[in-house]
Design a binder for these strands. Sequence first.
DNA 1: TATGACAAAGATGTATACAACATGATTCTG
DNA 2: CAGAATCATGTTGTATACATCTTTGTCATA
Lengths: 217, 217
Amino acid sequence: MEMQSQGYTEDECYRKLRTAIIDGTLMPAQRLVEMDLARWLGASRATVRTVLARLEQEGLVERERYRGARVRHVSHEEAVEILEVRMALECIIARYAAERATDEEIAKMEELLGWMREKFEEGDLVSYSEGNARLHRSIAEMSRHTTARRLLDTLNSQNVRYQYRTILAPGRSHPSFLEHAAIVQAIAGRDADAAEHAMRKHLSHVCDTLRKMRSGP
Amino acid sequence: MEMQSQGYTEDECYRKLRTAIIDGTLMPAQRLVEMDLARWLGASRATVRTVLARLEQEGLVERERYRGARVRHVSHEEAVEILEVRMALECIIARYAAERATDEEIAKMEELLGWMREKFEEGDLVSYSEGNARLHRSIAEMSRHTTARRLLDTLNSQNVRYQYRTILAPGRSHPSFLEHAAIVQAIAGRDADAAEHAMRKHLSHVCDTLRKMRSGP
DNA sequence: TATGACAAAGATGTATACAACATGATTCTG
DNA sequence: CAGAATCATGTTGTATACATCTTTGTCATA
């Protein structure tokens, strides 16, 4: 008897489904039928089930008894809330990053900032926005604050689509770049207070921008 | 044929297992064998499985492939991290509570503070500590900040045992009471800045206390 | 005695089958 | 024709059985 292709592991399925939700392959409110996912992921229904439970706990999926799972829709108000929490957490990691970053890490961060400057000056706002995300991630790494990092990761997954729109808001790209430069400078100078301050200033601006976008989706 | 007692629903099992972990019925590093839990909870192994997956995502349980689940052990360093994040989140909800609380809610909060004062003066520190937790929960409710509340809830579940020891640290009960009184007063006065400030001061003290307890469990 | 192979036991991961439930179409009734 | 009851379909929830892996204990051998 031939062996069936032995299906992917739970964590692989978790990551695949998660990224599909985050990058918009699966749209909010879309039904997630267990059998369909099982076939798509090459896994059993049981595996899909636990994955859905985890994603529910993470806030990416909504489940209702006997009615199945759907991609969770993040309202505008909730996006603001999430950004507020993010702001608080990013202040923590900025502070720790200033205290704990190695020289190599700082060099890499500054290199990344230079790359962002290029993209910004070229007017390539999509690449710039990607660099933005990478910068925040690298700061989180440098902080070595496991708890804050983990929470930030789940929060970020929930408002990626919104972040896109804030960074591209008219007239926001130049201030955004200057704010990021200030953060990098503070961390490079090992000044924890300045790092926290710069980060708070940056995110409070993003927050204001988002609050004003009441008309958005 | 007689109907078997028809098993509890997933959410019931989730809550029951969760509280068992939080209140210490199940100790850290203890193995969680699916069949045993299934019998204890009166549910199927499949249900237990999804519950364990959720609790893992929440940080209360650790799972390893083919090796089962255990109650997660929270290290001292992690307890400090968690408290730092809590501090940031509690500042947010304190601010919003000051802005959004109704008169009835404020009256109830002040009543609770009075009760805590009694218990404190009676030297009943266990009841006082319970009141402490209830006060923080009521502030979280008043804030109407769903996101921060949800995260705080999961974080609190992870360092309950530590909190107990900080509140009972020698000489900490009187300052603790004064700090809580200041928070209540600020919220009652609808002063968001003062509320955030008082909360930050309070939790930074708790944080310091915890940092000094290197010898603890 | 120490060490390594090997088998037995126990637990987890997965497939299958079936029962419980929600939903929407169909039929019956006034 | 309107509305309620009924049935058909599809999906989720659960039980069972089995495969797979880890762990432990045994035994032979140097």
